[in-house]
Design a protein around this nucleic acid. Sequence first.
DNA 1: CTACGGGTTCGAGTACACTCTCAGTCAAGC
DNA 2: GCTTGACTGAGAGTGTACTCGAACCCGTAG
Lengths: 142, 142
Amino acid sequence: MKIGELAKRSGLSAHTIRYYERIGLLPYADRDGSSQRDYDAAILTWIAFLRRLKATGMPIREMLLYAELRSRGAATEPERRVLLEQHRNRVGEHIADLQANLLVLDAKISGYAGAEKGTDHNDTGAPNDGRQPAGKRAARTR
Amino acid sequence: MKIGELAKRSGLSAHTIRYYERIGLLPYADRDGSSQRDYDAAILTWIAFLRRLKATGMPIREMLLYAELRSRGAATEPERRVLLEQHRNRVGEHIADLQANLLVLDAKISGYAGAEKGTDHNDTGAPNDGRQPAGKRAARTR
DNA sequence: CTACGGGTTCGAGTACACTCTCAGTCAAGC
DNA sequence: GCTTGACTGAGAGTGTACTCGAACCCGTAG
């Protein structure tokens, strides 16, 4: 399979695949006669796993570490397990955090809720926090 | 309250506070005699809210939009509610996503689980996906 | 033969959200 | 009077993860 095909099947762009290979996240791919990358379908499993790590917020640095351990064979499995466990715990905390914030957001939305036309009957966190007009807006968010 | 104090109390750095003011996320602060920012404690509520939006992954662009609506008064409440609801839904999806990925991670960790010394008895998703040595590492992750 | 639709490398550019440096001002304390 | 520490605005720099452009090569269909 060539890079375009892999791009389609993996959901990464060809650009990104080359980039991942460059930094070592993907193994250096075999090249065919005209030095074009030729992939085995097995790589899809690894990419899918990388995507999962990424989706859960693992920085590339850590993925690289994992990839390197993996390339060093079965002896590194305990280390890999530790890495994944730490990551899992961080993700768990992050989820808890999001859920807590979501609750507050929901409370605030409820504050706006009945107010189809600005009734603004508030009690606790009130949608209208902070106040004070925002004053001069300063252009450049960059 | 001066900027240093606000920084301590809000958890933002003074740099970040000035930056937020520059881009319009924080209202233009009143200056004292020597043109130093002088804050009212009320701003803390707004900052706390911003931090919540940020913690849930809202881009600054959208926070700016919200801030602008808020500065335009009660008439924009329906719009603000819509904005928050959309955001809440995105966050909900994101959480669901994370949880799904977490399950897969856990499954993979279980694969490593018994293997305190590389027993590697696998069945389904197997921790050892993909295989193939990672080949030449190419330095620059930048 | 020539256009085309891929592929190749390398380096530069982008987006986001800060974060820091610089050169200078200012009030309070010794 | 002078040091100290906090403040000022403007702009440059940082880290992360891509994303794109330029210039080129290569095999096949018309």
